[in-house]
Design a protein around this nucleic acid. Sequence first.
DNA 1: TCGGATGATCAGTGTGCTAT
DNA 2: AATAGCACACTGATCATCCG
Length: 584
Amino acid sequence: MNIATNIGRLHSFGWVQNPSNFDNLQKVVSIFNPHSSHYQLLRDSLVDTLIPLDQIKNNLHEKLSNGIALFTYEELVGTKQDIHGNTNVSRKDAVADSLIQVSIESQAKNTRGKRWTDNWTASGYLSWALSLHFVDIDHETGFYHITDQGMEFSEADDTHMKRILRDALLAYPPASRVLDILAHADRAVTKFYIGERLGFKGESGFTSYDERLMIKWVEYESSKSERTKIKQSVEGTADKYARMICKWLEKLGLVESSRDEIEKNSEKISLFKRYRITGAGLHALRQSRGSSKNKQVQKYVAWEFLGTKVQNVNYVRTRRAMILNFLKKSQSKRALLEHLTDYGFTDLDTILDKDIEGLNAIGIRIISESDRYILVDDINEIYIPNIGVTDNLHDIELEQEKSKLISETNLPLKYYELLDIAYDGSRNRDYEILATDLFINVCGFQGTVLGGARKPDAVIFTDEYGVIVDTKAYSNGYPKNLQQEDEMVRYIEDNQKRDADRNNTRWWENFDPFVSTFYYLWVSSTFINKFDEQLVSTYKRTSTHGGAIGVVALLSFASLIRESKLTLQDFANDMQDVVLNYSV
DNA sequence: TCGGATGATCAGTGTGCTAT
DNA sequence: AATAGCACACTGATCATCCG
């Protein structure tokens, strides 16, 4: 569960399937640089000419016209939809609907004149930019932004670009792993040999085919077209990752390739491509490892690198991230085991060694001795998203959030209990009463708790405006809910019509009769998924603005009001059918 | 072939029902 | 009256090969 804020969905990255073109990568990174020529091309032509869906086009156009360089996943990667917005369509009927899609020309640009790519390749390019740390994500807001290296890369010429890429690939663990595999191989090897040694083996996201088996298959296949088919269609996921990484390294001169040919029945048969590390590659690898820890290139590792297709992938990634963060400080196996156990991870006896083996295989070097693990590489501290993958972790995160709020705000102590109540579905009534209490006695609203059938949970008001309040305690956050929306719409209309025949509870009489402007407000723990749609829809159905406020924002809001850093009129102005996001 | 392209897959969501 | 629990259909992100 996410306690802190309303972040979007978590996306995978770190393992890259399709992209291999550095110029395209530079374009993608330049989307985040308003001074780049590509940004200007997007603004002046690509978005308008290639995206046929008005709403998406207008939104992107407006952002680009204002020089904005923060984008969401959806704005960057897009989806698969046809011109009418139907998503259940075949890819060949999909139209362009994102910045990266229109930044990269399709392979079919010459045959079919298609000048944009699909959402899978778009997501691959975003993943590549994130993996090389040219782009990063702000986990609080869900916006992607450029990094310093990214800005340098965006503005680099050809020669400079290669130098930046060389450094970035040496800091990208899978690429350094591939170089390491090649450095230790005593011959030129195929993608299958490399794939077998790359990634978390045994997990379905890293399949690899046996090198000898594949070579034999091609050798003994008599039909030329069948041989071609095998060579271009048969590879595991890890083999594919290996091929792409080798290609990148080859373009930078760190790896070279060759192709075996054999002669059978006076026919030349070409086998699989083989890769070998070059002198420059060996030198770069040694240099990046340095003679001492200070001289090492710091490797960039993100939580998302640490697992792909495996059961409970978030749990697994968090466990591995916690292992790495811990090994930065201590080598003791026993202490590590205790640390993970404290956070609620189980089955560690068998799993710990496997994780260490897997981490080595993705390019993070850890030596295992009898009583300690030695993290050889220098890596960054890994950001671990607050998603409470174990019960203990969840409790710990909640406590941390609570103590942070208590230290940064100055409210009467009883209100901090809201943090617990908001997540406890069985204490809905408590939440209603205490939240209304906060609005009235701390924020300075007038108003009352109502409750009961056919009445909102509470009404609050000032001399200027009134608010219809619906409060819900939800353990996992408040998702979009049509019944709740209908109910709120009914209350808004009740209040507009004020007709006792329509609703004989006459609950609206609790507002001061002179108040004529009204808003709606949902109060809960957090708001998840597509709750935004509920807000927009409520406005469209009633022409009444409002908002939603989570418990952390609610307490922050009260604190800001109390310190006179915010007024109740600001609150009304913020009611633009969004989740209100106050923080101290 | 190289550099993506494509249909398949599966976990995550919304929805509507029942039991409590 | 409202929520948890469940089955269900749908979708979107990601995979696993596949291919012009």
